[in-house]
């Protein structure tokens, strides 16, 4: 079993201030494995400030971890040079949140799609490049004749986001990092884009890391989930188990706050204890302590990860009776 992507105890700290150095830990001690042979969709969920986007930036090699290592096919991604780096750039692709901001407004769709083809020498001739573009556009459910030759402003948000996916698909990536790909598009188009992502995973063998705060879509698209809160893993496991039977108080709060389109479900049965303004990082204990309705004395110390079942673990002392599991082994709990 070869690992496509490996994260070993990755921590990222942002520090600011020259004289009085203060720092924010955006991601603390996250370990993760993605297997090469089994493409999967893994959701990384959490509210704003939970470190989701930091994780995406780290995985794409845009920023370096403060400590720990990220390996792609066994090689540290920050040590990649030359040919290897180019391969990494091609095989790991990204789709970002805002489909209105990522395109150069002066370039037509053709240009946007042909640049990566040229850069990575994906085609031998103009005709072959054209065929590749048409194939990628068809794969995301767009009609090439309606899309090619157009400027971004002539396309809707959903169409643009699908062009992003098409551009990524063109390069035959092994890993796609989708950072909130549907949060800016209409609900009716969301379904189309999510369907496209899933087809990508099934038919093209692409592993997807789906970063979101929307647990509804996460539930529908992914197999496993990691819930982050202020940089730490709160709960992880099989998406069905975690969402239908959340064990960490934070996951419960998140799931309880989803406005389900169901009249028989009451919104927000558990109370939100603290307002975000009162949250400042105090001490080394559980990161959720300030907002947790079940806070106990022991929560002043950092909680380890407790394994609850074959496919679920939570970092909470409420489950102190369950066996502990080292954070490095987190991936074993995630079904492929």
């Amino acid at each position: 079993m070869a690992a496509l992507l490996e994260l070993n105890n990755v921590t990222k700290t942002y520090s600011r201030g020259l004289v009085s150095r203060s720092s924010t830990t955006a991601l603390s001690n996250v370990s993760l494995n993605l297997d090469e042979s089994e493409p999967t969709i893994l959701t990384v969920a959490g509210e704003s400030g939970s470190g989701k986007t930091t994780l995406a930036m780290l995985l794409l090699g845009f920023i370096n971890p403060t400590s720990g290592q990220i390996r792609y096919k066994g090689q540290d991604i920050n040590q990649l040079r030359g040919e290897d780096r180019l391969t990494f750039r091609r095989e790991v692709q990204a789709v970002f949140q805002d489909p209105f901001a990522v395109f150069n407004p002066f370039y037509t769709v053709d240009h946007l799609l042909s640049v990566p083809i040229e850069r990575f020498k994906m085609a031998k001739s103009k005709n072959e490049a054209r065929e590749k573009m048409e194939e990628a556009l068809t794969a995301v459910g767009l009609r090439p004749e309606d899309t090619l030759g157009r400027f971004p402003h002539q396309l809707s948000g959903g169409q643009r986001q699908r062009i992003n996916v098409a551009r990524a698909l063109l390069l035959r990536p092994r890993l796609l990092i989708a950072d909130e790909p549907v949060s800016m598009v209409d609900a009716s188009l969301r379904a189309n884009i999510l369907e496209t992502l899933r087809t990508l995973q099934r038919n093209y063998g692409v592993s997807i890391i789906y970063i979101t705060h929307d647990l509804t879509t996460a539930f529908h698209i992914s197999k496993s989930i990691i819930v982050l809160y202020r940089g730490g893993v709160m709960e992880a496991g099989d998406v069905d188990t975690v969402i239908k039977n959340p064990q960490h108080p934070y996951t419960r709060l998140l799931i309880d706050s989803i406005p389900w389109p169901d009249l028989n479900r009451r919104w927000g049965e558990t109370e939100i204890k603290a307002r975000e303004s009162e949250l400042t990082s105090k001490g080394t204990g559980c990161k959720f302590l300030g907002r947790c309705p079940f806070a106990m004395e022991i929560c002043q110390t950092p909680p380890p990860l407790f394994q609850l079942s074959a496919h679920q673990a939570a970092s909470c002392f409420l489950h102190a009776k369950s066996p502990e599991i080292e954070p490095e082994r987190l991936s074993e709990l995630l079904p492929a």
Partner: peptide, 28 residues
């Protein structure tokens, strides 16, 4: 939510994700 009349409203309602029909997407 229980009995939408207009076909567009019906499509909107049926495009909603829920916990029951996992992995079924109905776009409009």
């Amino acid at each position: 939510f229980s009995d939408p009349k207009h076909p567009y409203a019906q499509a909107l309602i049926s495009s909603l994700p829920s916990l029951e029909n996992k992995g079924v997407f109905h776009g409009i």
